[in-house]
Simulated scan of single mutants.
Amino acid sequence: MLTMANIIISPSKYVQGKGELSNFGSYADALGSKLFCIVSPSGLKRVKAPIEQGLAGSDCEIVYEEFNGECSKSEINRLIGLMEQRGCDAVVGVGGGKILDTAKAVAYYKKTPVAVVPTIASTDAPCSALSVLYTDDGVFDEYLFLPANPNLVLLDTELISKAPARLLVSGMGDALATYFEAQAVADSGAGTCAGGQVTNAALALARLCYETLLSDGLQAKLAVERKVCTKAVENIVEANTYLSGIGFESGGLSGAHAIHNGFTVLTQCHHLYHGEKVAFGTLTQLVLQNAPLEQIEEVLSFCMSVGLPTTLADLGIAEVKEEEIMAVAQAATAEGESIHNMPFPVTADQVYAAILGADAIGTHYKSINE
């Protein structure tokens, strides 16, 4: 039997800095001559001036199109039609995850370059070769795996630091899982989203992601609450976006994200951001693999310091019902879920016990720290 190759993938260029959107023109010429920019109405108000300032003196022209709100097949097809009408030869997505995923999908079908410009740092999706498709009503449809990562990922940290602090913290929750999931995949020899096995480079980036969260997470949260961009904010934006992006895609997913997917079956959790559920999924994964208590305490302490969930009550589950937690566990262990990349077989009963175990530890540490 042939063994899988070790593979790492990444965007062609990653640019991050304060006011960097006003330098957009210096990167745009490599993309195309007429850019099709997908953006929300509110986003356009914030980014139009710096983008056009950045394009001054460039040979690039840009046209804007408002995003309809869902990364759906019908929205992608609508945008492809408009892009063709306007004779554009490259795509730019400016905004949050659904806009960025839509831009990547449009560029894939049109076989053009794509630039991704996140205005928040709430997930590790911008760097990935993946679009998550939904129905027009917002129900998950399918994953669209792309043959290449974005040509350009550009983050203006001045813009990102003005977004609500909860979004940055949610990004930290998503990033928190990166190292533990990648290490589990490396231990099991399972495949990654990049189509191979974990490289040492991806594992090192995942480890650096975790260390950056511990060293700069709280400082970054406090700075963003004041709408300022400090060095800690810069470090956390890079951890949330690039380190976690390369770490999850080329390092692999395992327990935490599968447990997150399980919690989506409960309506009580629908108000939470992706990274908030992933953070509790990380604690549950650590309990599932019987990680050393010092490791669990370190993760708990971090979560409590920045305001990530550490108990079921924090997730909005005021009354713990056995059948509901078992439904979460069964969804997390469904066939094809990433939890089967753990270095040991995992059953729904084990996940059920780990969820309640994580809740018990989180509740205990909250009580002694109040």
Rank of each mutant, 00 (worst) to 15 (best):
308 L>H: 10
352 Y>R: 03
237 V>A: 04
116 V>A: 09
98 K>Y: 11
235 N>Q: 14
128 S>F: 13
132 V>D: 01
212 T>I: 13
96 G>K: 00
19 G>W: 11
110 K>S: 13
117 V>H: 04
303 C>M: 14
183 Q>R: 15
109 Y>T: 05
274 H>E: 01
324 E>W: 11
133 L>D: 00
202 A>R: 12
119 T>K: 08
79 L>W: 05
95 G>F: 10
304 M>G: 00
66 E>Q: 07
58 S>W: 09
92 V>M: 05
220 A>L: 05
313 A>H: 14
251 G>Y: 04
304 M>D: 10
109 Y>M: 09
48 K>D: 09
24 F>E: 08
330 Q>M: 10
312 L>V: 06
185 V>W: 12
76 I>S: 00
309 P>M: 09
361 I>F: 15
107 A>I: 04
364 H>Y: 15
225 E>M: 15
301 S>W: 00
244 S>Q: 05
318 A>I: 12
304 M>K: 13
191 G>K: 12
336 G>R: 11
196 G>S: 02
35 L>Y: 09
343 P>M: 02
272 L>I: 02
92 V>L: 07
296 I>N: 01
229 C>W: 11
107 A>T: 07
186 A>G: 02
108 Y>Q: 06
266 L>P: 07
48 K>L: 06
173 G>S: 11
13 K>S: 06
23 N>I: 07
124 D>A: 09
171 G>N: 07
198 V>I: 08
133 L>A: 00
288 L>V: 05
310 T>A: 08
126 P>W: 14
104 K>I: 12
143 Y>V: 00
340 H>K: 14
16 Q>P: 01
155 L>S: 09
130 L>G: 02
230 T>E: 06
135 T>W: 01
17 G>Y: 10
158 E>R: 13
281 G>I: 04
114 V>I: 09
366 K>F: 13
182 A>I: 11
266 L>R: 02
157 T>W: 14
165 A>T: 08
343 P>F: 10
229 C>D: 14
21 L>S: 05
175 A>C: 09
195 G>M: 12
149 N>K: 01
199 T>H: 04
357 G>H: 02
25 G>L: 13
366 K>M: 10
351 V>I: 02
300 L>S: 04
28 A>M: 09
119 T>P: 00
22 S>R: 15
222 L>G: 01
148 A>V: 12
278 V>K: 05
335 E>D: 14
109 Y>S: 02
266 L>G: 03
280 F>R: 07
256 A>G: 12
47 V>M: 03
234 E>L: 12
164 P>S: 03
29 D>H: 09
32 G>N: 04
147 P>M: 13
59 D>S: 14
95 G>N: 06
